[in-house]
């Protein structure tokens, strides 16, 4: 067969892309593509022609484990628990709630450095009114939100590192010693700055940490964090 014959070439390329060229013929075609550039080009053209049909298919979200397996195969992470979910790209959900509370004690020397820089560089902010600060960081130690607690408010600024999900909200919680469940402090801004009213209990409690959870739009449906993404330690100024 003369594979340089334009008609034959097109017919074979079309059936190769369609998937009806099978068996030995398919393997022979693949080998010829490596040798004959025009055959390759015909194939690319048919891919462009026919793959438009796929754009009519409604996307279906694959299971999370697909991305986790890909991350592992490519050596991005050592094990599944470390694989960041792509849809919350700078987010690593805590594997278990248990791990969250246990991890609190050992947190945040990096955060402390960021906070120091923040405070030093932030002269126009009257330091006297800020009583406490916290930096919510991603798993890659990038600052996502800067939190300043003043006498009556909690000022939150999101950073450009944040890549929020459009169909989710992020909620801030305080975790206090001797209080079983975290207490909501309000929704975090997905961009820019937001002032939250400080919970009246805030100053009376021994706050171990702040936590950020991923929630449906408008926040937790049941008053408890749905999926804790990060925690941050409060530093007293």
């Amino acid at each position: 067969m003369n594979y340089r014959d334009p008609q034959l070439k097109d017919a074979l390329a079309a059936e190769y892309v369609l998937g009806t060229l099978r068996g030995q013929a398919r393997r022979r075609f693949q080998k010829l593509m490596m040798q004959i550039p025009s055959l390759r080009e015909s194939t690319w053209l048919w891919e462009q022609h026919l793959h438009g049909m796929n754009q009519l298919l409604t996307p279906i979200t694959p299971d999370e484990r697909v991305w986790q397996q890909i991350s592992m195969s490519l050596g991005f992470v050592d094990n599944v628990a470390q694989a960041p979910l792509p849809e919350t790209s700078n987010v690593v959900p805590m594997a278990t709630r248990n791990r969250l509370w246990k991890g609190l004690a050992s947190m945040a020397s990096a955060a402390a450095i960021v906070m120091a820089v923040l405070v030093v560089n932030n002269q126009p902010v009257p330091v006297a009114t800020s009583q406490q600060v916290a930096v919510v960081q991603s798993a890659q130690s990038k600052a996502l939100w800067l939190i300043e607690v003043t006498s009556n408010t909690i000022e939150v600024r999101s950073t450009s590192n944040l890549k929020p999900l459009a169909n989710k909200d992020y909620e801030l919680w305080m975790v206090a010693k001797g209080v079983e469940n975290p207490i909501s402090l309000g929704l975090l801004p997905k961009s820019g700055k937001l002032t939250l009213v400080k919970n009246s209990q805030f100053d009376d409690m021994d706050i171990v940490a702040l936590a950020v959870s991923l929630e449906p739009l408008n926040g937790s449906p049941n008053g408890l964090p749905t999926e804790v993404l990060y925690t941050a330690e409060l530093a007293i100024l």
């Binding site: 298919l57 279906i60 979200t61 694959p62 299971d63 484990r65 697909v66 991305w67 792509p86």
Partner: peptide
């Protein structure tokens, strides 16, 4: 690459699932 995956995996999964018809194979 993670962003690329997020932007395209739904579309590509639909292609794969349509052809294979079984979720675990499509994944």
């Amino acid at each position: 690459f993670a962003d690329l995956y997020q932007s395209t995996s739904g579309q590509l999964f639909a292609v794969s699932l349509k052809m294979l018809g079984r979720r675990e194979l499509a994944e």
